[in-house]
Amino acid sequence: MANGSNKLTARITYLEMTEHSTVSVPTPVGIRLAIMRASDMPVHYYRYLYEQVGKPHHWMMRRKQSDAEVSATIHAETTEIHVLYADGSPAGFAELNLVRMPEEAEILYFGLVPDFQGRGLGRFFLAETIAAAWSRGPQKVTIHTNSLDSPRALQLYQKMGFTPVSWSEEDVETWD
């Protein structure tokens, strides 16, 4: 919904999983895949992934942060970044926020580069991201999505075992 010339109103859905998911997702065939946990990721590469995945959905938080702020966050011990590679190219990334451990592991960012959407990679990568979050030993795993994300995101999260627990609205600046 438009709200002024460069603002959109997003409805945010907060979800949580309080038990390990029993959903099994096979590895997609016909494409070479690798998921690597990034350590000491250069800020420019993080910004590239963030833009590629987040621009269509108007992701905002990291756009507003300085390089020093982004660096401090992505290099913190309470942050994990996992990058999905498909046939050698970056296909998506997930960012875990572990600052509220052991109570909660949050999947703060999750998504695919548009070129790799529609190939069955999202469900596989999400299952692997959920497993990575649970491997840290939290009491629950959380994620949120909003009405500007992929229209399939909320449905996918619920199919994977997340349950909506609350909602809010937020004004978001468009990413032009």
Rank of each mutant, 00 (worst) to 15 (best):
Y46A: 09
G120Q: 00
R136S: 06
E173T: 11
R136K: 14
K64P: 02
K64V: 10
H20I: 08
N6F: 04
R11T: 14
Y46R: 01
P42G: 09
V113A: 09
N146A: 10
L154Y: 09
G137R: 05
P42H: 12
E169M: 12
R62S: 10
V83Q: 13
D176V: 03
I81A: 08
I74R: 09
A86G: 13
G4H: 08
F162S: 00
H58I: 12
T73K: 12
E95K: 00
F125I: 07
E69K: 05
Y46S: 14
A153M: 05
A72K: 12
N97P: 06
D176Q: 09
P164Q: 00
P102T: 13
T13K: 05
R63D: 15
Y109W: 15
F125H: 03
T142N: 03
N6I: 04
H58E: 10
D115M: 02
D87I: 12
V172A: 01
Y45I: 11
N97V: 00
Y46E: 04
E103P: 05
L15D: 01
E95I: 06
Q117E: 15
V53N: 07
Y48T: 14
Q155W: 12
L84N: 05
Q155S: 15
D149T: 05
E95S: 08
R63C: 07
L108R: 10
A133Y: 03
K64Y: 13
M101K: 00
A132Y: 10
R152S: 15
L98G: 15
E103T: 15
T78K: 06
G4C: 06
P164F: 04
M1Q: 09
P164N: 02
T163A: 11
S150F: 00
P114Q: 11
V99H: 07
N97M: 12
T22D: 14
G118A: 09
